[in-house]
Design a binder for these strands. Structure first.
Lengths: 212, 212
DNA sequence: GTCTATATTGAGATAGAC
DNA sequence: GTCTATCTCAATATAGAC
């Protein structure tokens, strides 16, 4: 829905239960290419032609598999989430203090994959513009993230009020996101993992001292 | 430079020392329109035609005054900075603890102008993509912001090391930016001013206790 | 200095051959 | 299921009348 044209029925071929392994592989190549292009060029500037070239198919092939550019974006976001889940190898995301370790560990990992960081930073901010196809995705993502951090904070600082825990959860997530942009603009200017450690420790300390 | 075409000489008429007051007024109307359109639609999706319509000139008129879309963006960013400076009415940006009050006050103000918040959130993240015309602008902006917050922190927590003060400055700025995106996606989910107060107080406390 | 008209480019999506 | 060719639309930028 990025251009003015009205919505239309999903073309055949999008979202079938891909029977053939070859097809699944091609879909995956397209998704990887979409990650790379959307990350470096943004959503609106990244074209299906570029994505097709990088994946070794024509742009028509891309549309054949995903129906439209919007749907490709959504599919790519889900694909990335699935990859991360796969890395966790069945372990659930940890609770309590272990979650904060996990967050810092993720930031450390992210330093080795600036493409992924840029993908999320650009698309996330892009999504606040009117009618952006990934708006629901990011809204839901933040709801989930806040809930997760909130739970961990409640474990670690049970004496804090719900209101303060809510606030602290938003704050920690916001810091991680904001740091990414500063880091992308100048990688030597920000020590992301250490900054995240600082904000987590600071906020937990503060919640404790407030409740005392 | 958003499309593939090569750079070309700045057309006549762009950036003259506008002699006529009428012209200056029209330029200002275009800049206001650009703020509004770039905020709601993003840089790439916002067109010169829309901006022209809102300003009451043709899109050719827009180009006549600013030379190109890229240059219009830069001019608009500078114009916004100048407006903020004008609001301060000659007062300098405060030092020390007063700066933190000023930051919170700014966030409170921002709640009443979501358009400006969105403008910066979208363009700032957009600017990390390759060849974005506002990249230098935002890089310089962060350098300046960090320096400002660093100075205030050094006033308030003189016993902290430079390294910790640097880190804390990045963190506070990051939180403010990250909160904006969450807030834009769901205004009822985040209490921005209170969250900013929390992070400032938390980080200052922490720097103090670390130095003890 | 401002407009209308147009040139040029590039996008996403469709049709139909293979 | 994949491609080539084409369609439709919209964008930035230019040319030239007024």
């Amino acid at each position: 829905m990025t251009r003015g044209r009205a919505a239309h029925a999903v073309p055949a071929g999008a979202r079938v239960a891909n029977p053939r392994p070859e097809t699944a592989e091609k879909r995956q190549r397209i998704l990887e290419a979409a990650m790379s292009i959307f990350a470096t060029r943004g959503y609106n500037n990244g074209s299906l032609i570029e994505i097709g070239e990088e994946a070794g198919v024509s742009h028509a092939g891309v549309i054949h598999h995903f129906g439209s550019k919007d749907q490709l974006l959504i599919a790519m976001l889900e694909y990335r989430d699935d990859s991360d889940v796969a890395e966790l190898e069945g372990k659930h995301i940890p609770d309590g203090a272990a979650l904060f370790d996990h967050l810092v560990r993720t930031v450390e990992l992210n330093i080795e994959r600036p493409g992924v960081v840029q993908l999320y930073a650009v698309l996330c901010a892009d999504s606040v513009t009117e009618g952006h196809p990934a708006q629901d995705y990011f809204r839901a993502r933040f709801v989930g993230l806040r809930e997760m951090v909130r739970g961990a904070l409640a474990d670690v600082v049970p004496e804090a009020s719900d209101a303060r825990v809510d606030l602290a959860a938003s704050t920690i997530i916001a810091t991680m996101d904001g740091l990414q942009v500063q880091w992308l603009l100048d990688r030597s200017a920000v020590d992301m993992p250490e900054a995240v450690r600082l904000v987590i420790a600071s906020v937990i300390d503060r919640l404790r001292s407030e409740a005392r």
